[in-house]
């Protein structure tokens, strides 16, 4: 049997669409935890990225921080924290957040730095106070890039939340991890298909978000 056969077997299985181990429950878990992690990462990274990008200071420090954070093995961190702290939300959230902060932070910083300085000059010269320059000029212009950074963070969170099933966490990764240990390849492949689909849905969501939030004047001039 090939992967398509396995996948079909998985999705056709009775009871698959309800209950504690049903697809809707697992999907909801995955989305909830991913959203929570993304939210925490945004709260940390976005203000720092916006302000440092606006002032143009600490760029080198951010680059070093980002490289260091990228070198942190998230899966290793997940296992280590679970051993140290026991099962729980914190050992899962820390690696997920640590994973998403660098792309959001660095892209936001770069996006803000990339805003045409003459635009900022004009905005200041017209008499906009700094928070309006940031919020009404720099942010809307930098938004496409910032969104791409958030998207990249979200994708990595969704991907790594899958692995979190290894430390007895819920979500779609459960199917893969359980299937592997039960040597049930239909379950493994089914889980992988669901995870991939969720990742693509995340891409689609951010594409839509861009259509809604980004001004056509900025979108087309790129």
């Amino acid at each position: 049997m090939n992967i398509f056969g396995y996948a079909q077997q998985f999705f056709d299985a009775p009871g698959q669409w309800s209950g504690a181990d049903g697809i809707p429950t697992r999907l909801l878990e995955h989305v909830q935890y991913s959203a929570l992690a993304l939210l925490i990462a945004l709260v940390i990274a976005l203000p720092v990225g916006l302000v440092t990008g606006h002032t143009g200071r600490s760029g080198n420090a951010l680059a070093v921080l980002a490289t260091a954070a990228r070198a942190l093995p998230s899966f290793g961190l997940l296992v280590l924290l679970t051993i140290l702290m026991g099962l729980g939300l914190t050992p899962v959230m820390v690696p997920l957040v640590a994973l998403a902060v660098p792309p959001i932070l660095v892209t936001t910083y770069e996006a803000m730095r990339g805003v045409d300085p003459s635009l900022v000059d004009a905005a200041r010269g017209i008499g906009l106070p700094w928070w309006r320059v940031l919020g009404q000029v720099e942010l809307p212009v930098a938004l496409p890039l910032i969104l791409s950074g958030i998207r990249s963070g979200a994708i990595q969170i969704v991907s790594t939340a899958t692995i979190a099933a290894y430390v007895s966490f819920g979500g779609l990764g459960r199917y893969i991890v359980d299937g592997l240990s039960q040597v049930n390849y239909a379950k493994v492949v089914g889980g992988a298909v669901l995870v991939a689909a969720l990742a693509l849905a995340t891409l689609g969501f951010f594409w839509l978000l861009g259509r809604v939030l980004v001004s056509p004047g900025v979108r087309r001039s790129r």
Partner: peptide, 9 residues
């Protein structure tokens, strides 16, 4: 976008 674990599988 495809998670590594799914890709491996």
């Amino acid at each position: 976008a495809i998670p590594s674990l799914a890709f491996f599988v």
